[in-house]
Design a protein around this nucleic acid. Structure first.
Length: 222
DNA sequence: TGCCAGGCCGGGT
DNA sequence: ACCCGGCATGGC
């Protein structure tokens, strides 16, 4: 048992004890989860919710409906999410691939060999590593750890990766994959908990106090 | 008021 | 292999 794995487990246990289950995207359809994953790229979640509300009102959280909607209509509805022209094209690319390669079935698209499914997602214009993993975990219920800026920061701060290593998505993800059992439900919670703790405590030095991880060995300068 | 949010792409080094 | 500018709304 490596020391790294112990710390990775310890962090999870502490965050879960402090905050409990986050239950990200619990009642939403997998379809809405995918749309949300694309809309939330570099965007505050409150803005994504407005966009999703517009789509719901138009019954557009549906692959066939989205397929038949014009770019202009989609752009208008998702406008509150920001970068809406770009995201319209990204949704279009996803819908297009879903129909051309998977008969419009998300379940079909997300089943099969995990590495292959992930590579297929990455091949879609606008789906990068984080969005692909978010789709896999939160919509596909597959164990592929989501790495974001918060994740990198926590690993860095607690000495699980060097600042240099923390820039590599691959390296950061590997820390989790080598330390944890491949459990989609746990990966779901772990990522959500990291976002939670970082938002509360990592904004600046002053908010560090009270962090559930403050008693673990760490370097505040990171 | 500026900076940032649950990134990604394309072009340049 | 990295680094950077662009994308754009709403909240603090």
């Amino acid at each position: 048992m490596s020391k790294t794995a112990d710390v990775v487990h310890e962090i999870y246990d502490r965050l879960m004890s402090a905050y409990g289950r986050q239950g990200w995207w619990p009642g939403d359809s997998d379809t809405e989860t995918v749309v949300g994953a694309i809309l939330t790229q570099n965007t505050a979640w409150t803005n994504v919710e407005r966009a999703l509300a517009n789509l719901r009102k138009a019954s557009a959280v549906d692959w066939a409906v989205l397929r038949d909607l014009s770019d202009a209509k989609i752009a208008e509805m998702i406008r509150p999410a920001g970068t809406f022209r770009v995201k319209t094209l990204r949704l279009r690319a996803f819908v297009s691939t879903l129909w051309s390669q998977h008969a419009g079935s998300l379940g079909n698209m997300l089943s099969g060999d995990l590495a292959e499914v992930r590579n297929r997602l990455l091949a879609i214009h606008g789906i990068g590593p984080e969005t692909a993993d978010a789709i896999l975990v939160y919509a596909g219920h597959r164990p592929s750890f989501v790495v974001d800026a918060y994740t990198r920061r926590v690993l860095r701060r607690h000495g699980l990766v060097t600042p240099d290593e923390s820039r590599s998505y691959e390296i950061v993800q590997r820390v989790f994959h080598r330390s944890l059992e491949p459990d989609a439900e746990m990966f779901n919670e772990y990522h959500a908990l990291l976002v939670k703790v970082a938002k509360r405590h990592c904004r600046n030095r002053a908010t560090c106090a009270g962090c559930p991880l403050v008693e673990l060995p760490h370097d505040e300068s990171l």
